[in-house]
Design a protein around this nucleic acid. Sequence first.
DNA 1: GAGTTTGAAACT
DNA 2: CAGTTTCAAACTC
Length: 583
Amino acid sequence: MEQSETASDLAPRKLVRQLNFAAVYGDPSHLKLPPPSPSPSPPPPSHSPLRLQLDLLPPGQRPWLCSEPQEQQAWLYSPRLKLVSPVRRIPHPVKKLPVKVLQVAKPKSPRSQPQCNVELKDTTPKKQKQCNCKNSRCLKLYCECFAAGIYCDGCNCVNCHNNVDNEAARQEAVGITLERNPNAFRPKIASSPLERRDSKECEIQVIGKHNKGCHCKKSGCLKKYCECFQANILCSENCKCMDCKNFEGSDERRAIFHKDYNLVHIKQAANATISRVAGSSGYGTHLTPKKRKIHEMFPGKSAMDQTDNITAQYQQEIDPMASSPSFLSDSFVSDPSNTRISASSRSTYRSVLADFFQPQNVKNLCSLFVVLSQVAAKTNAEMIGKVDQQTKTGNFEASVASSSKSLQETRDVHQLVCDDHVNKDEADAVDIANYNRPLSPETLALMCDEQDDMIFGNSSANGVACNSTLQNMIQKSSNSDGCTDVCREQERLILTKFLDVLRGLVTHGSIKETMCSSSTKKGERSKKEPADNANIGAETNVGREKGIHNNSFGNYLIPSVTKISQTNYAVTNGHGNNDLSLT
DNA sequence: GAGTTTGAAACT
DNA sequence: CAGTTTCAAACTC
């Protein structure tokens, strides 16, 4: 492609381009001269990064830097006005950008993944980035510096004309670019000063949209190839992207933002157990991992596969209920296709229980189990005490003490499980090594499977080790006669209550699934409609219909610890009511 | 650091 | 306006 269009070739168009430029940046009457300085300021270094006071600019307007080295600072450049003087645009009468002094906007950000704490209101990098143009002479929009309206400064470009020495050619290039696209130098992102921070997700999101929209095909709009993603905005109706994952409620997008937010312990602790219970509850256990689906959708795309693998991995870690193939999302719905959100445009599954299970819920559940254990221990102790009141006082106390100790250990283990920041392996190690109280073979078998699933995966060697360890524990359990009855009762209560909780989850998921399915039949949502809305709406409706006043997992399914404690209090006060049905 | 992938920009 | 080519950043190895 011919890139060497000379300035002389462009000369006849100059006037038109200048007029275009003026049209782009407004009528000169909007401009005012800077305050007169007592003496002409020396020009800035010709290749120094120029700075703009963007708060003096109306939204949606991008200044063009002065092209004359003698014009210092970031005077707005306009071919029609440059002979007058360096000019500065007056503040917009209504809106004012919240940003302060920014370096001249560059559309591309550094190679860093977006982070929770990233300052997104200003989506531009704080440090000027050097371009590496080779063929464009830095006079086309390919060049980030040129596109940003700044001189190349310290760049690695070849045959650069985006400098003072080639000002004529540069101006011509500006004119050509503007002639082609009058908005070429305007911000691509029409960002508003508003931002939304999702406290739960530590996610900051600029409320804005790409003026032209992206046209991504392979990146899922979750890589910096995508200008929307790069600007930390959601894709909008302006976009013509394919397989977009950069929409509100996207699990993949959330995963990217939360890859450091490690909930893997919570997920893994509940994952194997609940999936097992689900499998025994009559629901199908056919699992269609999302990862596999993505692979099927992108055969032979190694880069995409890797990205999707990472994404799925992150998703599993942060959103167990929504993404875990062995968790509720697929196990609890009879037809996973019903959970497909806007199938034509978003080929991602979203669990009907997504965002339903929160860390606090797990903590509440753990607390509940601990209290139940205490209830069982005390109840059993009372029974023992009545039988052997006169002859086994010492043993009774020892038994209670032993139960208390084991309960405390249980509590510790559960706290480890519930702690978002604790190392999972440590928790599991504690779980095995310090679980001194005897366990029933059923529980141990359950744990063993959990260990297989959660820790060792499919490793046969490790699985053998696991089995060996747990067999020893089983042996220990069968040989132990210290607090067998107490432990059995603890297990019975905990598992019974856990089953109730899971049944509640199943019911909730089924209801939401039904609602989602019906809403899907009514009409497929538009591409950019947030996926969560339907679920939330369905959930709300369900809540009304079912008399559920709160869709919070903790309030809905898990009775409060206080309530359990009250029951516990009743038991310990001799009411003898061991019925802990709290539904 | 080289090679590949990607999508906007430029061109036809 | 659609299809193709060019380009440089983003990404992978």
